[in-house]
Structure formats: C-alpha cells, structure tokens
C-alpha cells in the first residue's frame, strides 16, 4: 500500500496493480477506529494496518487486492463512476462462469445504532456506526453476488443481502485518484462471516485469483482504449514508497491513528 500511495503522489499515466498478501492482514479504512478491530475476534493476531482509502476493514486472505491510480486530467468529477466501471467489468466476468452479481442500488441498508460523536483537540466523528468489515456493509455500487445456493460449507442463506464479493474505496490527492478494491475468492477462517466467488462455484470452474485479475485489467483498459504494459517502479517511486512504508504503513503511530 506504500507503493500505491507513492504512485498517487507521482502519477502521470494510469497505473493498475494487483497483489495478494504473504501474511493474512487486516486493513482498516482510513477513518476507522483501531479499537474496533479488537472486537473482531476471528482476525485477532493478524497484522493490522490503516489504509489511506475510506470504507470498512478488509481481511486480506483468499482475496485479490487491486489498485487503480489515475492522474487528475483523466479523472471525471464524479469519481464514484470509477467504482462502477470496475465492478461492472467483474460482474460481466462472473456472468461468464454462471454467477449473477449486481451493483448494489441504494443507500446503505445494514447499519447499527447511531454512534455518538467524540471530540478532542482535533475533531473526528463517525456519524453512523456501520458494520466493521467492508464486506458486511452495503454501499451504492458494491458488487453483490446472488447465488442460487452455496456449494460448500454450512452458511446461513443470505437471501436478503446477497454476498458482497467486491468493494472499492478511494483516496484523492490534488485531483488524482487512488482506488483500492478487494475481490473475495474464498471464505477465510479469519472472517468466516464472508464467502467468496469460489465458494459458489463447483471445483472444476473455480477461478484463479491472479488470472482473474489479469483478465480484469485487460477488459478494464480496453474500455478506455488503453493498452497496458507491465513495468517496474522507478527509483523515485521506490524511494517515496519506502518513505511511506516507514512513516505510515509500518508505523504504529499511523496504524493506531484513531
């Protein structure tokens, strides 16, 4: 995530990254309280870091993280359209393997009681207390899987809310945008409340996360007429990323910011 942040600072052309995590890791949304992660028992003991993007916590385990970084001149004023672009592309790919996934159409529907504000010298507040995990929240444009029936495990049939399998969030800087997203591929013991794409597919048709991601990039880029090529970080990008890693994503002060 330090690399994503460095690329946001230095972006001159669209960049897409795909990655998975060596160690199952919990990432908090930028405004989430660290203390909330202590209430999520299944992920206890996992490394915790704070993203610079918004939204809820992600358990990075059996999932694929993508980041999309666009320079200001390519960003539309309604940046939420970027969510839809990626999510519709994934929905189309899932349709090809026989799964129905739809963009969530309305305002959040899953909420806990209102949390009272807290103030200090610096003022920050959460106006409504949403579920801790991103994938238990519902926001406009989230990609929700509507399976006929799960094929593995014993799960409560979620016929009302469906199963969110892709959520994205953004950080804006001087007009440029970093969009993070997570595609769930499989249920994790560290977040057993959530099912992934492969939990709804027979073994022979299960998706390889990285292959899926590469196909997603191809399709996403072709929508814009962009041709992508793989590249390495420049020395400058590497230096800035190392700085962010030290000052933010490996820093207890940053990760326990709230």
């Amino acid at each position: 995530m330090a690399v994503d942040q460095a690329l946001l600072d230095l972006v001159t052309q669209p960049v897409v990254r795909l990655y998975r995590w060596e160690t199952p890791t919990l990432s908090l949304g930028y405004f989430q309280a660290t203390v909330d992660s202590e209430q999520h028992l299944e992920s206890r003991g996992c490394p915790v870091l704070r993203r610079s993007t918004g939204g809820g916590a992600i358990m990075h385990d059996f999932e694929l993280t993508y980041s999309l970084i666009l320079p200001a001149e390519l960003v539309q004023s309604k940046t939420s359209e970027l969510y839809d672009r990626v999510h519709r592309t994934v929905a189309a790919m899932l349709a090809e393997v026989g799964l129905t996934a739809l963009l969530h159409p309305s305002r959040p529907t899953v909420q806990e009681p209102i949390e009272h504000g807290r103030s200090s010298n610096s003022s920050a507040v959460s106006v409504q207390r949403e579920p801790f995990l991103c994938f238990q929240r519902r926001a406009v444009g989230d990609l929700i899987l509507w399976p006929n029936a799960p094929t593995s495990g014993t799960h409560s049939a979620d016929t009302v809310l469906g199963h969110k399998i892709l959520g994205s969030a953004q950080r804006k800087r001087d007009g440029a945008v970093l969009q993070h997203g997570s595609i769930l591929f499989q249920q994790s013991p560290r977040a057993p409340q959530l099912l992934g794409i492969n939990d709804f597919l027979p073994t022979a048709r299960r998706c390889d996360a990285m292959d899926f991601g590469l196909e997603l990039i191809e399709r996403f880029m072709s929508q814009f007429g962009w041709v992508w090529e793989s590249s390495c970080l420049t020395d400058q990008e590497t230096n800035v990323a190392q700085d962010y890693e030290q000052t933010r994503f490996s820093s207890p002060a940053w990760n326990a910011l709230r």
């Binding site: 405004f31 610079s52 003022s123």
Partner: peptide, 23 residues
C-alpha cells in the same frame, strides 16, 4: 478538522472528509 491554535498554510491541507468511501 485541526484544533484551535494550530497553524494552516495557504494551499496546504487542513483537514479530510470521507464520502462514498473516498477520502
């Protein structure tokens, strides 16, 4: 938002908002 007594600098960040999961 920042606190009373803090300094702000023209053209530099003084606070952050989150909307539609975007900071």
């Amino acid at each position: 938002l920042p606190g009373v007594g803090d300094s702000v600098t023209a053209g530099e960040e003084f606070g952050e908002v989150e909307s539609v999961k975007a900071v």
